[in-house]
């Protein structure tokens, strides 16, 4: 029952965001609110098993959501800017030394692994390629491996980032 209510709430809030300013009475027209409720209930019936698959409701905690906003706006955005300057440098000079390496993440949950893989893709010099399902290790394509690094059997997730340790941020948000 709780996953159904959460899915309906999420769909309804998204619908209201997309139709704000539609009516003269207040902000929303009554018809838009009615249709939004009906559609949100339909979405909830169809998709109730996809959100909260493991019946774990830790992401409702507002502290985690505030941390998520701070994470996206400050450390993640800085890393993205560094990543783009890095790509511009590699495009101009053509100096690359690529390879695929195993990265140990130590994250247990699906959401944490997904956020780490997306962060790795958008941060400097790294691109997540595949995942080892049994151990949760990621396989990461690195565009410029330092001399001697390729001898190591695996890397820690924190070593991939240049400015701040995004893996520790994700552990605090999602676990």
């Amino acid at each position: 029952m709780i996953p159904f209510i959460l899915t309906v709430l999420l769909a309804f809030v998204l619908y209201l965001l997309l139709t704000a300013g539609s009516g003269s009475t207040g902000v929303w027209a009554y018809s838009e609110i009615l249709i939004g409720l009906i559609l949100a209930c339909a979405v909830g019936v169809v998709a109730r098993n996809f959100l909260c698959r493991h019946r774990n409701y830790r992401m409702i905690n507002p502290l985690r959501l505030i941390r998520l906003c701070i994470y996206v706006l400050v450390p993640f955005f800085v890393e993205m800017a560094v990543a783009n300057l890095n790509v511009a440098y590699r495009v101009i000079t053509g100096r690359i030394r690529p390879g695929i390496m195993r990265v140990r993440s130590d994250l247990k949950t699906d959401l944490g692994t997904m956020m780490l893989a997306n962060s790795i893709t958008l941060t400097p010099g790294t691109l997540s390629v595949d995942i080892d399902d049994s151990s949760g290790d990621l396989f990461v394509h690195i565009i410029n491996i330092e001399e001697g690094e390729e001898q190591k059997a695996l890397l820690r997730a924190g070593e991939l980032f240049t400015v701040s340790d995004l893996a520790a941020w994700i552990r605090r948000i999602a676990e």
Binding site: A83, N84, R90, V91, T121, L122, L127, V129, H141
Partner: peptide, 17 residues
């Protein structure tokens, strides 16, 4: 860039940003 992975590096990061 020479192969598909390095092209993905270039395209994903720069077009998103």
């Amino acid at each position: 860039f020479p192969d598909v992975y390095t092209r993905l590096h270039a395209c994903t990061k720069t077009t998103t940003f």
